[in-house]
Amino acid sequence: MRFFAGLWRLAIAALCFVGTYEAWQRPVLWVYFTFQTGAVLGFVMLWAGAATILKGIQPPAWLKGVVTLYAVVTAVVAFLLMPPDDPNYVPQILGIMTNTMLHRIAPIMAVADFLLFDPHRRFQWHYMFSWLIYVPVWFAFVMGRAWLAPTLLGSGPAAGGNPYPYAFIDLKALGWQQFGINCLELAGAFFAVSLVLFVIDRIEPAKPLLG
């Protein structure tokens, strides 16, 4: 089972790297939350997979938890908030769109990895809050880039050169009031997911369910 778990994690890493390959060719795509977190998930799973097979040092619990958190958020956003991908524009590998790999398949596999292959009862209560540090940093990055894009950075990553990567944080279209409401709702959703992960970690047995 150890080798299966290791290969499972390496498969997640492969999906993440294939899913983000567009961003390596078009750096403007790194504005997207899912490309950033997907790449980090890939590197962490590469580490975890190699460590599992070679009986090496695993990623710290905090790091494994935070990439799982953002994988869940990525999947929720993809399934509930984003329009379906157009196969005429999204690259495909073996008939599967790369966005599907990054936004749906890899996150689902990462959650399964957390539930089945990870040891549990390792999360500290403050992880629920420290995991969220990246969210305001990313928002600040997006806002700063949107402010600089028209004069220094050229067009943005979204359709028509819009500097805001997602419609639900498009300040120009929403206005400050709705933008603020959306940010608060997103922050609440992030915290809710982090709380669920913490509770699951406490409920599950300390030893992995499989392995």
Rank of each mutant, 00 (worst) to 15 (best):
Q178A: 09
I57T: 15
L148P: 04
F168Y: 14
G156F: 04
L29F: 09
S194N: 06
I96P: 01
P27H: 10
L210F: 10
I203N: 04
G38A: 07
F17N: 04
V77C: 03
Y21Q: 13
P91S: 12
H120T: 11
G42P: 05
V66L: 02
L174R: 12
A5W: 02
D113I: 04
A11R: 03
V193H: 01
G160W: 05
V142G: 00
L15N: 02
L132K: 08
G42Y: 03
L41D: 00
L184A: 15
A173D: 11
I203F: 06
A206Y: 05
H120A: 09
L46F: 08
L209K: 14
F198S: 05
P136Q: 08
H126D: 12
V135Q: 03
L102E: 02
N182R: 12
I169V: 15
R9C: 01
Y164R: 06
Q178L: 11
V199T: 12
Y89G: 09
S130H: 08
V193K: 01
G56H: 09
F4C: 08
A61K: 13
Q58C: 05
I12D: 00
V77T: 10
R121L: 05
F3M: 12
L184H: 06
R121A: 12
A158S: 15
G175M: 09
D113A: 12
F114M: 11
I53N: 01
I181K: 09
F117W: 04
L116F: 14
A206K: 14
S130Y: 12
T37Q: 04
L102P: 01
V31A: 04
L116D: 02
V111Q: 02
V137N: 04
F190M: 14
H126K: 09
L148S: 14
V66F: 01
F114S: 02
V111K: 02
L152S: 08
K55R: 15
T68D: 01
V72D: 00
N88F: 05
L41Q: 05
W147K: 13
I169S: 01
A14T: 14
Q124F: 05
W147M: 10
T52M: 04
L69C: 06
V66G: 00
A50H: 07
A39I: 07
G19C: 10
S130N: 07
G188V: 07
I200Y: 01
G156L: 07
H120W: 06
N99C: 07
H103R: 14
K64Y: 00
N182S: 08
H120M: 11
T74N: 01
L41P: 00
F198V: 10
W24D: 05
P83Q: 11
W176S: 14
A158K: 12
L148T: 12
A173E: 13
L210D: 03
M45L: 08
R121F: 03
W30T: 10
L209N: 08
Y89R: 14
D113H: 05
